[in-house]
Amino acid sequence: MTTIDREFIGIPSPAVGRAGAGGHPLQGIYHTPAGRRPRTAFIASHYNVDFSEHYMATRMAARGYGFLGWNTRFRGAEHLFSLDHALAEIGVGVRLLRDRGVETVVLLGNSGGGSLMAAYHSQSREPNIRPPYGRSKVFEPALHLPPGDLMVFLAAHPGRPEWITRTMDPSMVDETDPNSVDPELDMYDPRHGGSYSEDFLARYRAAQIERNHRLTAWCKEQLDAARDRPARDRIFTMGRTWADPRYVDASIDPSKRPTPLCYFGDPKRANYGVMGVGMVNTMRTWLNMFSLQESDCVATPHLARLDLPTLVVQPDADSGVFPNDAQGLYDGAATADKEFVTLPGDHYFAEPDGARDAVAETLAGWLSGRAQP
């Protein structure tokens, strides 16, 4: 059995230095085969989830590759996220790998990290992201990003704005009252059943987009009104974000996923709970991350610049990333060198037994003709 070295890394960000209590803003763990300096290494990062001990890290290191589970300073701080700062901080991780002798850097976009890594590659090829609402310039270090060499999408979402919109509950008529409901748009109302009509779905999807646009307009109005005030931004909550009809109706975008189910269990209960993506935001961050109109945290435009060899791996029983999402990533990738693989597993390949090893073997097999460990 291969022995794995784990190197903890804590370093400053281009934006902020070490905290007074001692913590560094950028932290991660570099996994390598013991005593070796791999020529090929992965870097995995996310908008806010801790990827330092990612489930693929030791598996890829056991197969001869390096794996940097890399956290920007927004780990656990989604409500403060800024895309240009995050990309600059991922760039620090890529440079770190190059400094350790890595010749081939594999950008691993897992879950929400898919659109983040797509944006990173896109920005490294041609600076294109917009500054956050209310700022005139993109953070300078984000204009000079070191490129990666290969791209892997693993159970990846199409982008934060698209994902949050498709899971928003459009029946919420009052953003300040999580119990407010328009029954005509309530997917959990028994009258609509667990198998939805095309008419209902069309009205439902349109109302989800309308809710996103409504929140965008409100955030802009609030920020514009406060531009010359002492408090120029503030925290707000966004309720009811577990309401994608695919959680309940298995005939929509069919797969082997169980229903009803979302990442927090029973979707109706989760929808009225306080756990979930995007529940707490500043207005500026909401525009930067979730707005269909303002956010660059989307994969689609960035995929048009994706000229790297690309692998898309989709679990066959994912309860939150669906076959059409993965197909969209594959179809949208501009590169001619791309492959799409569906493997048994849930979102994190925690089940069935051996699912994560099957992913590792798939990644290693794909890399074998493209890079040396």
Rank of each mutant, 00 (worst) to 15 (best):
E140V: 08
G328K: 13
G265W: 07
F264M: 15
T300M: 12
E198Q: 13
F200W: 06
A299P: 11
G113T: 01
H192T: 04
R229S: 13
A206G: 02
D5A: 13
V105K: 03
G193V: 09
L223T: 08
C297R: 06
K338S: 01
G10A: 11
L261V: 01
P147D: 09
A243V: 09
G66I: 02
Y330G: 00
E103W: 04
A77L: 15
V181L: 06
R18T: 11
T72M: 12
V298N: 12
D316R: 11
G193Y: 04
K137V: 14
P323H: 12
W242A: 12
D199H: 14
T40S: 10
A19S: 14
R160I: 15
A57K: 05
T176M: 04
V277M: 15
P301F: 08
E210R: 12
E339W: 10
D253K: 10
M289V: 15
T2P: 14
V49G: 06
H31M: 00
Q208L: 02
Y196F: 15
N71Q: 07
L261W: 13
P344L: 06
D325H: 14
G345T: 04
P373L: 07
M56Q: 15
S319R: 03
G265P: 08
I164E: 10
L306E: 07
F51N: 12
P146H: 05
M151R: 10
F42D: 12
C297N: 07
N281T: 04
E126Q: 15
T176P: 01
G278W: 11
R75Y: 08
V274S: 13
L97K: 02
A304V: 03
E140M: 07
D50S: 04
D149S: 07
R130H: 11
F153M: 01
N288L: 03
N179E: 14
P141H: 09
G64D: 05
Y65S: 00
E89Y: 11
P158A: 11
V248Q: 15
D50K: 11
K338E: 00
Q208G: 03
T72P: 07
E184Y: 05
R6E: 10
D266N: 13
A355K: 08
T282D: 06
M289A: 13
D357N: 15
T310A: 08
V105Q: 04
F290G: 03
A355Q: 03
P161L: 01
G278F: 09
D169F: 09
V313H: 05
G76C: 02
F236M: 03
R246Y: 04
D169L: 03
G114Y: 06
G239N: 14
I29F: 05
W163K: 15
H157F: 02
G239Q: 09
A41V: 01
R240N: 12
G276F: 01
A299G: 10
L80P: 00
P260G: 08
W70M: 04
L303D: 04
A41D: 11
A217D: 12
I29R: 05
G194S: 13
T104L: 02
K220F: 00
M187Y: 00
A21W: 15
